[in-house]
Each structure stands twice: as C-alpha cells, then as structure tokens.
Design a protein around this nucleic acid. Structure first.
Length: 746
DNA sequence: CTTTCTATGCTTTTT
DNA sequence: GCATAGAAAG
C-alpha cells in the first residue's frame, strides 16, 4: 500500500513520468492538484531531487497556498523546502536579489494599475494627448501587451512607426517606464519582464537557477502569456524537466494577455513531449458534466477530449426565466434558504456566480433583506479602497521617499492647505534640478515663490521625518498607530462622523489587523518583520486569496474568480445574450471572442458538484437603462432533457408573491448552532473611544461588518487595546479596540 | 484652496 | 445607477 494507490491509471502515469517535457491535460475536477502534489512526493521519495530542487509555479496565492499545504501534509519533513509560489512572487525574489545587475535598485516598490493610470494621465497631459481619444486603461493595456511580448519601449516604437495610435502609445510607454524608474517602482508586468531580461543579460545568474531547479512544474498553463512562457523555458532550460498542467477549455484570461497557443502548441515547441490526459471527473454529477460537455463541444479551437464520471446521474439542471433581476435574486435567495432549512445544506455549500460585478448589487440587497450571511469576492479589492491606499501611501513614502506618486497622493491628505499651485511649483523645481519630488520637499527653503505655503510643507515634512525616526525604534504595530495619529488621518475621519467615514475607519482597522498578522507570522518564522516586507506582501495579494472555506456564508463572485473552486450548489445568473456572452464579444463578430465566453460558461458549469441552477431574466437594468435580452445561446446548447423548467416560451411565471409559497423560515437557531448577524448599516461608534472597554474576555461583541463574535483575548498594545475576536462568519480577527467600534451585546 | 456641481463612462482582472 | 473626474463657483 502506497500513497499512489489512490490515484487512477493516468494520474499514476503522470506522477511517474518524471524526465523531460510533460503536458498534462487535466479537465475540470480531474484531480490535477492531487497529481502535482503526489508527483512532488514521488520525486523526493525516489531520490530524484531534493525538496529545494523542485519548483512549482501557480498563478494565484490561493493556489500556491493550497499546494503548499498539501505538499507539506503529504511529505511532512522537508516539504517546506519545495519552492511553491506564484509567478509574480518568484520574480520578486529573483529581482530583490539581483536586479542591480541590470541597473535597478533592489529596494523597488510595486505599482498597481491605479498607480499606473496616474502616471499615464500625467503623460497624456505632458504630451497633449486628447483624453477623449485615448483612455488610460487602453494605453496601459497596450503597454502591458507589449511587455507580454517582451517588447521594450524602443522595440515598440520601431514597430509603431507609421501608425498614429501606436506612435502615441509608444510615446507614453517611454514616459511611463521613465517615470517608474525615477520612482524606483516596477509594475506587475515588469516583475516578469525584468526577470526575463535579467536572465537574458546575465546567463550566469540564470545558470544558478537552472542548476538549482531540477524539476519545474507549472499549473494553469493555459493562462500563461508570452513572458511567462519565456520565463518557464529559461528556468527549465537546464535539466529540461518541465511538467505543465492545464486545460485549454478553461482558458479565460485572453484579455490579460494569456495566449492559448502556449498550451495548444506545447508539443510543437517541446518536440518529445509526452501528453497525458486526465479525463475522469471526480467532482460533478453525470448530468452536470454532460451539460458542460455539450456546451464546450461547440468550440472549434480545442484539444480533443471528453470528460466522463462514475458519479451518479444526479438531479436535472434547473432553469428559471424570471421577469427581472429582482425576481432572479429573490429566487436564488429563497432557494438557498430552502436548502439550508429543509435539505441539510449549509450556507457555504452555495455559490452565486455572475458575469459582471455590477450584478452583485441586487443579489446583495435580497440577501441582506432575507438575513442570509454572505460574502462578495472581487469588485473593488480591499487594497484598492481609497483609505487603504492613502495609509499605504504614507507607509510607502516612509519606506521609499523617491516614490513621487505616493508623496503626491498624501501631501494634502488630510487637508493641509497644500494646493495644486504649490505642488506644481515644487514639481517644477524638482524637475529642473533633476531631483525627486520629496528631495525638493527636503529643500523646500530653496523652492522659489511659495511664501505662506512653505510653512505648510514644513509641517508635512516634519510629520514624515518623525515617522521615519519612529520606524527605527518601534515595532510595526505601535509604529502604525503613530502613523495614523501623527498624520491626522484618523482624527479627520473621526471628525467627519458619517456612516461612510465609519466604514473607512473599520477598513483601516482591518488593515491594522493584517499588519498584526504579518508581524506575528514573521516572528513565528524567526524573521524580523519589516515595513518593506509588509508592503510587498500587500502589493501581491488579491481578494480571492482571502477566501476561507470554514465560514458558513454564501459566496458571490464573478465566473472568472470562481475558476479553481467548487461548490455543491451553484447558481449561474444573468444567462442572457448581451450579458453572457457579453455585448462586446457578440458585437465584434469574432468567433474567437464567443469561444472565450463559452469557455467561461464551461468553467461556471463545472464548478457545481450536485446542483446547478441557471437563470435568465427577461428584463434587466443595465447602465441605468432597461434592457430586454434573449436567453443566452449557451443555455440553448444544453439539451432539454438535462433541464427542468422550460427554455423556450418559459412556463415559469414567477411573481414575488409566489415565492412565499416556499416554506416559511423558522427560528434559525433550530438549524444552525451559531447565530449570525448580517451586515447592518454601521452603528454609531462609541463616540470617544476611551481606553476603558465595556467588554471582557468571553463576552459577545458586535462588529458592524463581521457581525457577532466572542472576545478571545484582550492585550494592551501601545496606545490602544488589541482585541482578538472569533467571528462565526469570518473566523478569528485581531482588532484595535478604538478603531473597530466593537459593541458589547446584551 | 475648498466645496459643489455637472458630465461622462462604464466586461472580465489570477498579480 | 453609480462613482469618479474635472470645471466652476465660493
């Protein structure tokens, strides 16, 4: 009996085929992570490689974390030395070590697209480019596209000659890279681009890694782009033991530069590549899988394969055609309630999926109304919120003062009476003498024509100087409190006294608890937690990474975010032509675009284990206007005998009163051990959060976002108490008493 | 320099 | 329908 006995024949084959190039075509739910982790175990067990000679690359932190855990539990001792990480964090590691060899500073900051847009906006002003004709996002995606094809600004300029639009892009690309370099910053694409450059220009560095990594594995290979392809071939160029895993039918990130030909042509590039197909699905019922197959088979550009399963036939797929999006939402909510109350299902067995984030609003409304606990993923990322970006900008300035963007962001936040004219003057001075913006602030006495504004700048400068000094002496948590105090940011928000401001205060509180977690985890790992380390971690994190499975809540997310996840009950909403497939993909008239959407549909269907509900609405409010859309063409590709409810003509006449025919909700506590509290409109904070708390360990407290939880611990920390609370909906959280607005229950 | 009003523009988004 | 950016007014 060995650990490999639990694998099927193809899985075993993939596991034992270790040398050379291997393409693993792994259909949805076919157990590819199992194969990858067992393969790692096999390599180590057979003595083919030491743990640190194996590299596994994923796209998301979540996938990396999951693989990490599974490798650890399978291998036990030594497992933690296997290099498991995302493309981007691997590159950060490479670059932090050696980027100086190609003329950059090792202490670079990572910019997100928001930062990028600011730079482009600036560049467009400088070059007099009409913002009506060029959108920042369009420019950025052109730049991103160029980087994905390994084209620097010069190469791009050459290729752009004669094309009016591209020539402007080229101009902005150059400006953008200049500005990033000045600010000592790299964007997401740069992380990959410069790593490839580093390896190209310094073969000695590349060789070190090629010797180190005897075996390289890449997950979600169908989503790789040009640079990633190059990077992978560089890394695996030594031993040439490269195993890529993917499913061409789940390639849904073309708009981010993913190139499906990487997987389709793998065998052409790696001539002796072995191909193994994993076609047995362990996740879904026959009915669901059948539907998925029937839909995806309408795509022409794909590798031949047919997913099958030994699972039961299961229930038919339910189809509803509702009159409008409110009914749609109500129906989903009622159905979930019914499952929870009458069918022994938990809330977290349910996922509601949609094409666009905007659709979540109506659903959220009905969920709140029905008191169903839920969590929305995606939309505006936590780290994109204004208050979070502001606070992070302060940290960035303290960490890397050359970061002009960050300095300009917070120089007048909160208001210090420093306006556009003053900033322009400093800017002009900085540029004429070739220094950074903050350097000009340092030498503010030399900047001409400021008069009264000078004192305001000096006040600001002192704040930053003092905080820089605090960072030297204090631990991160007390330092953070200093930042919030000394900058006046918290004071300003508290004075505002609106629900919105309270929400922002809570978000900052959440950021503080993230910092606490970070500090703790680094200390546990025996490392010194640094500000730079925290900023880096925060820059590379996504919303979905924070999804924890043990919270009993319904989850809402886009079809894109759902990739890689599975749920017993899945609701696919908004299945209408014009929404899904999107209007864009229909109007270009390109079959490729429709195929991409169809793959997205395939991804959605295959998320479901037991029950799949598909809903279209006759009428829907979109962009403030009522739209009447036809039922999605994808829905029509599913044979009627797999569906319950009628597709054409639609016999399902739902009016809201009809839904009250569903079983009435009884006292929730009969069914769920833990009472829950859904998001309520923020309750007023204890207005002067003084330091005496009205709750103690063991008490139940209420948080306006996380609901009710039990206080696990209270510890003094600097000027405020750190309170650890266990919330049934989100798990344990460490909060600052003054910021969190916790209220004792009862 | 700050506040308030009007216009505009909107898919998806692993990092 | 909503959020955000830029212009106009205080």
């Amino acid at each position: 009996m060995s650990i490999y006995d639990t694998l099927n024949k193809e899985q075993q084959e993939a596991c034992f085929y270790t040398e050379g190039a291997l393409l693993l075509l792994a259909g949805a739910g076919s157990g590819k992570t199992r194969v990858l982790t067992h393969r790692v175990a096999y390599l180590i067990e057979k003595g083919l490689a030491q743990p640190w000679e194996i590299m596994a690359i994923t796209f998301t932190n979540k996938a990396a974390k999951e693989m990490r855990e599974r490798v650890d539990s399978l291998i036990g001792h030594g497992g933690q030395d296997v290099w498991v990480s995302t493309f981007h964090s691997s590159c950060v590691r490479f670059l932090r070590r050696d980027i100086d060899l190609i003329g950059y500073d090792k202490n670079f900051t990572i910019y997100d697209t928001d930062d990028g847009k600011r730079i482009i906006r600036e560049g467009m002003k400088l070059h007099n480019i009409d913002p009506k004709q060029f959108k920042e996002s369009g420019v950025l995606s052109a730049i991103s596209g160029a980087k994905n094809q390994l084209m620097g600004p010069d190469a791009y300029k050459q290729s752009a000659a004669g094309d009016f639009r591209k020539e402007k892009y080229a101009l902005l690309y150059e400006f953008y890279q200049d500005r990033l370099k000045k600010n000592n910053a790299l964007d997401f694409d740069d992380l990959l681009f410069y790593t490839v450059e580093l390896f190209r220009l310094r073969p000695d560095v590349l060789e070190r890694y090629q010797k180190k990594f005897k075996y390289v594995m890449v997950d979600e290979y169908q989503d790789t782009n040009g640079v990633q392809f190059k990077l992978v071939s560089q890394l695996a160029g030594g031993y040439k033991n490269l195993c890529v895993v993917g499913d061409d039918d789940q390639s849904i990130y073309k708009f981010r530069g993913a190139d499906i030909t990487n997987i389709l042509d793998f065998e052409k590039v790696y001539k002796n590549a072995k191909v193994i197909k994993l076609e047995q699905n362990y996740r879904s019922t026959k009915t669901i899988l059948d539907a998925a197959n029937q839909v995806i088979k309408n795509n022409s550009r794909r590798k031949a394969k047919r997913l099958w399963t030994d699972n039961e036939t299961g229930e038919p797929i339910t189809f509803y055609h509702t009159n409008n999006e409110k009914e749609e939402a109500q129906l989903v909510v009622d159905d979930i309630q019914d499952h929870v109350l009458n069918q022994d299902k938990a809330y977290n067995d349910h996922a509601i999926l949609y094409r666009t984030n905007a659709q979540s609003r109506v659903l959220e409304e009905r969920l709140v109304y029905a008191n169903v606990p839920y969590r929305i993923f995606g939309g505006t990322n936590f780290y994109q919120r204004r208050e979070i970006k502001d606070v992070l900008a302060y940290l960035r300035v303290i960490n890397n003062s050359v970061d002009d963007l960050a300095v300009k962001r917070i120089i007048n936040v909160p208001r210090r009476g420093i306006g556009a004219t003053t900033i322009d003057k400093i800017n002009a001075f900085a540029q004429s003498s070739g220094m950074s913006f903050f350097e000009a602030v340092r030498q503010i006495e030399h900047v001409p024509g400021l008069s009264r504004a000078e004192n305001k700048i000096i006040t600001f400068r002192n704040i930053i100087y003092n905080l820089k000094a605090s960072l030297e002496t204090l631990d991160l948590m007390p330092f953070m409190e200093q930042v919030l105090e000394a900058t006046g940011y918290m004071k300003d928000l508290k004075a505002e006294d609106t629900d919105e401001a309270k929400g922002r205060i809570e978000n900052i509180g959440e950021l503080v608890s993230k910092l606490a977690e970070f500090e703790l985890s680094r200390k546990e790992a025996g490392e010194t937690p640094t500000l730079a380390g925290f900023l880096e971690e925060v820059a590379l994190i996504a919303d979905i990474d924070n999804m924890e499975n043990n919270n009993d809540v319904v989850v809402l997310m886009t079809l894109h975010s759902a990739k890689g996840l599975e749920f017993p009950c899945v609701y696919m909403t908004g299945l209408e032509d014009g929404l899904f497939p999107s209007y864009m993909s229909i109007s270009t008239g390109s079959e490729d675009d429709i195929e991409e959407e169809r793959r997205l549909c395939y991804v959605g269907i295959t998320r479901a284990r037991e029950q799949l509900t598909m809903i279209a609405s006759k009428q829907r409010m979109m962009h403030g206007q009522t739209q009447y859309n036809a039922i999605s063409r994808f829905l029509k590709e599913i044979p009627e005998d797999l569906l319950e409810g009628k597709v054409a003509g639609s016999s399902y006449t739902s009016d809201i009163s009809n839904t009250s025919a569903l079983p009435k909700r009884r006292d929730k506590s009969f069914f769920k051990a833990t009472p829950y509290q859904v998001k309520t409109p923020a309750k007023p904070l204890p207005s002067n959060a003084n330091l005496s708390l009205d709750y103690k360990e063991g008490d139940l407290v209420k948080h306006s976002k996380f609901g009710v939880g039990q206080v696990m611990a209270i510890e003094p920390g600097g000027a405020d108490y750190q309170v650890t609370v266990n919330f049934p909906s989100v798990g344990k959280k460490k909060l600052l008493a003054g910021l969190s607005g916790l209220k004792k229950m009862g």
